[in-house]
Structure formats: structure tokens, C-alpha cells
Simulated assay, not measured.
Amino acid sequence: MRRVFVVDWSNRKLFQQQMEQHFRLRHEIYVVERQWQSIARPIDIEMDAFDTEHAIYLLALDSSGDVIGGSRLIPSTRPHLLGDVFPHLAKGNPPRAPAIYEWTRFFIAFPHRATGKSARLAGEVLCGLLEASLQLGVRQISVVCEAFWPARLRTLGWTVEVLGEQLALDDSEIVAALIEVTEAALEGTRRFYSIEGPVLHPSVVLEPVRATEAAGHTH
């Protein structure tokens, strides 16, 4: 089922209802369910400093058009979590390049999760992440994640490099990693989740990243 949409600044007005659902789901999952109190706000939505005009959102929609899963990509040449909050996880040298994007805020709505295994919808969002990255010409994805994620992704056929030491938080250990974006990783993920063919909606057409897009950008 090709139900993963890409939403960015150019088409965001077409997905206003879904984007609001997306931010409310993030609140339910990260603030209420996972108790990330550092990102709690007085309102029932979860947005951070990186939800800017440069963010690219992957939204999995059900047959009614409601959001049931999602994720986010941020250009590494712009402010992002690893580069601006956790650079020490990459030994003070977080990777930055036009063809490197950061991956954050991966989630699956509770009714679509599977007990004791990774849900098929998770596979669809992961495939959408890789399909969109390949269309964009993104060669690597950086991520700040819980320490178990690199091994889990390697079981899908992903090439993942951990960039530094683990950091202990109140309820977990986190690491920074760099992921190679390849057709082999996409095919491995499709096989693991028994997904046949693309998951991005046919309306999704992305322009490749140009090396000049971030020229001159500094922090």
C-alpha cells in the first residue's frame, strides 16, 4: 500500500490537518507515553526548534487520511539535534554536508504496533525514509537514537556506524550514528517486512539535493 507522503514547506498547506495530527501524536508518544518531560509544553502538541521550513516530514496515512505513523528529516547543514544539541556524541565533530540529513521523530501510532515484534507499519515508514532519501540524493543519514537501534537496523541490512560513546539519560542510553542510504538497505527492509514495491504515494516527486543549496551557511 503506497500511503507514505512527504510533506515539506512547498506543500504543507495541503496537509494542514495531518500536520496538526502529527504534532499531537508526537505529544502523545514522546511526552505522555515516554515521559520526555524536557520537551513538555502547556499545550498538547510536540514541536521543537528543528520544526522549521527546512524540515521534511514523512507521514503514513490510513484510508481515511489520518496520520498513523511518521518521521522527520533535517538537512545537516541547518541546525539539527546532533549538530546543535549533542555534538559530543560524535566526538565534537558531527557530520555536516548537503548530502547528509538527520533523521528524528520516528513513531507509530499505538493501535498499529505489534506485540513482541516490529510492526509492518514501522517497516513502511522505514522504507519511506529510504525511498525519499534516495530520491533526494541523500547519501547518509545521521541520527541520535537509543543504543539498541544500530544493531536493530543492521538486521535489516543497513550499514550503520556509531560515531562515539553512549550517553546515559534518565531512562535510556543514547548514541549518535551515521547510516548509509543504499538500494541494498531498502531492499533488505522490504524483505524483512514482506513489503512489495514502493511505499511512497505516487504523488511524491522529490528534487535531488544540490551541493550548492547550503553554501555559505554557518553556525
Results as ranks from 00 to 15, higher is better:
40 A>L: 09
118 S>V: 13
27 H>C: 04
20 E>Q: 14
51 D>P: 02
33 E>T: 01
22 H>Q: 13
115 T>P: 11
10 S>E: 15
75 P>C: 12
76 S>E: 03
34 R>F: 11
49 A>F: 10
71 S>G: 15
69 G>S: 04
119 A>D: 10
93 N>L: 10
20 E>V: 13
81 L>C: 01
37 Q>G: 12
80 H>L: 02
20 E>R: 08
57 Y>T: 02
60 A>I: 03
119 A>W: 06
22 H>G: 02
84 D>F: 13
101 Y>L: 13
32 V>I: 14
17 Q>T: 12
52 T>R: 08
98 P>K: 10
57 Y>M: 06
91 K>S: 10
94 P>F: 08
14 L>W: 09
55 A>Y: 03
20 E>N: 11
36 W>N: 08
65 G>Q: 09
106 F>M: 10
8 D>W: 02
39 I>G: 02
52 T>A: 06
106 F>N: 01
35 Q>I: 05
87 P>Y: 09
107 F>P: 01
26 R>M: 04
7 V>A: 02
42 P>C: 03
73 L>H: 03
25 L>D: 07
72 R>S: 00
86 F>A: 05
31 V>G: 05
99 A>E: 15
102 E>C: 10
82 L>P: 07
80 H>K: 02
116 G>C: 12
95 P>H: 04
86 F>K: 07
87 P>R: 04
95 P>M: 08
19 M>R: 09
51 D>G: 04
98 P>L: 14
122 A>H: 03
81 L>Q: 04
115 T>D: 14
62 D>H: 11
62 D>E: 12
79 P>R: 15
64 S>I: 07
115 T>C: 13
14 L>K: 12
45 I>T: 11
100 I>R: 02
45 I>V: 08
114 A>P: 09
102 E>I: 06
38 S>C: 09
74 I>T: 15
25 L>K: 12
19 M>F: 11
88 H>W: 11
6 V>Q: 01
124 E>I: 02
119 A>C: 12
49 A>C: 07
85 V>H: 09
124 E>C: 02
44 D>Q: 07
32 V>H: 15
65 G>T: 08
107 F>T: 03
46 E>S: 04
119 A>E: 08
49 A>S: 14
111 P>C: 09
42 P>E: 03
72 R>N: 01
70 G>K: 00
29 I>R: 10
27 H>A: 05
50 F>L: 04
63 S>D: 14
124 E>N: 02
30 Y>G: 00
115 T>S: 14
8 D>I: 02
86 F>I: 05
26 R>W: 01
106 F>I: 06
76 S>I: 05
120 R>L: 12
117 K>I: 14
114 A>F: 12
45 I>L: 09
12 R>N: 04
68 I>L: 11
59 L>R: 07
19 M>P: 07
62 D>L: 04
76 S>P: 01
11 N>A: 06
101 Y>M: 14
6 V>P: 00
52 T>H: 07
79 P>M: 11
11 N>F: 05
42 P>W: 03
50 F>Q: 05
36 W>E: 09
80 H>C: 13
129 L>K: 00
60 A>P: 03
41 R>I: 03
91 K>N: 15
84 D>T: 14
123 G>T: 05
30 Y>R: 02
107 F>N: 00
84 D>A: 13
46 E>C: 03
19 M>Y: 12
